[in-house]
Amino acid sequence: MRFKPSILGKLVEPINRRRFQATVDSHDGDAYDKSFHSWDHLMVLIYAQLSGADSLRGLEAGWNANCQHHYHLGSGWLSRSTLSDANRRRPVGVFAETFDLIVNQLDRHMRREGAAMLRLIDSTPIPLGKICGWAKSNGRIRGMKLHVVYDPNSDCPRVLDITDANVNDAQIGRTITIETGATYVFDKGYCHYGWWTAIAGAGAFFVTRPKSNMGLKLVCDRRVAAPHGDGFTVIEDTEVSLASKGDSKLPIRLRRLIVKRQDGETITLVTNDLERSAIEIAAVYKGRWQIELLFRWIKQHLKIRKFLGTNDNAIRLQLFAAMIAYALLRIAARAGRIAMPILRFTDLVSQCL
């Protein structure tokens, strides 16, 4: 009988096995689990993510029930005790670098020629609760935080970092490699004058909201030629400078926009982009909602209260596996010209897995 690959087998085809093995070797990823290799581990966690398995016992039963596909996946029988040991000991860097490889491939699949380089930066909390006593609290939740740099043009996360919940967003923002010509869009949680200066110095731009205690003084007014945008109206466009003692820490020209939304709410934006029109800048900030779709996918399809381990390493591995699964779904949707939302496509794959 002619072999027909499983849905899972087709999804993981974009992962280059040789490059993956090179990553494993560089981290010595198979040093402690010689019978359960890193590839087996990755396949099992991707399957767990897409199938919705929320316990080691349920994952073991589901995986072993489909043993007819193990050979073609390059995997084998699963023991939950072996998986538990691997979750505790396998280096997170193996999955982190694999995610980077997949994202680069997704970017090549979905790059749009001539599109402006936009980078949306945000974070979302991963609550762990009292079961993980080691987890730190930020005053609201006890757990971890997922930091993402998202490219809306290629529709994929380009940078992913996982930290304790009490790590400041601006601290992670300063570690991002700045791309010349890119526009970084983020909220007021990423307020750091030194980082803003570095963005401008690298020939890039930022669009953000200032904190309420940020003193700005008027330099000159700018005329708004066409104030009405899609769901908002620009009511003020001015050039400003920092009016506090920290002038020397922000030696760049700033522009302040006051925008009235369709719901009547008024927001203030600050940018170092002096060339784009006010409507374009306001529209760029409005586009931040796109990263919320990614976070919504995470919250709906990642069993954030049912991790397959309660130690730090296991949770990080599962988070990276979830994001690898997300990128693979994006590649599959692109290759198959599937127009349905990623949330519905994930549901469909889960039913046919």
Rank of each mutant, 00 (worst) to 15 (best):
G114N: 10
V94D: 02
G62F: 00
Q21P: 05
T82A: 10
G93F: 00
L56G: 00
K34Q: 13
C67L: 09
R108E: 15
S75D: 08
V92D: 11
S51T: 04
T98H: 06
P127F: 01
A65N: 03
R57S: 14
P125G: 05
S123H: 02
H70V: 00
H69D: 11
L78N: 01
W39P: 07
A86C: 06
H41L: 04
Q105G: 12
G52S: 00
A61M: 12
R112Q: 15
H72E: 12
D54Y: 01
G76W: 06
I102D: 05
D107F: 11
R112L: 13
L56H: 00
E60C: 08
H27Y: 13
S123D: 04
I126E: 03
T82R: 10
W77H: 14
V44C: 10
E113G: 12
D25N: 13
R18S: 12
S79L: 05
L118G: 08
E113M: 11
H70R: 00
V44Y: 09
A61H: 12
S75T: 15
F95Q: 11
T124K: 06
T98I: 09
F20V: 08
H41M: 04
L118A: 08
H41E: 02
F36A: 00
S38P: 03
R111G: 07
H109T: 13
G62N: 06
R19P: 08
M110K: 14
L42E: 10
H72Y: 13
Q68M: 13
M117L: 15
R119D: 02
T124A: 06
T98M: 09
W63Y: 07
D100T: 15
T98Y: 04
D107K: 14
R17K: 14
C67M: 11
N104W: 07
N87H: 03
A61I: 10
P125D: 08
A48T: 00
E60T: 07
V94Q: 05
R89T: 14
S38D: 01
G74Q: 05
L50D: 02
D33A: 09
V24A: 07
F20Q: 08
R80P: 03
G58K: 13
D25F: 09
D85Q: 14
H69C: 05
S55Q: 01
Y47H: 13
N64H: 03
N87A: 01
R119H: 02
D40H: 15
F36D: 03
P125I: 06
D30H: 01
M117E: 14
Y47D: 07
W63D: 02
D100R: 15
L50C: 03
H70Q: 02
S123Q: 04
V94F: 01
S123C: 06
H70Y: 00
V24F: 02
R111V: 09
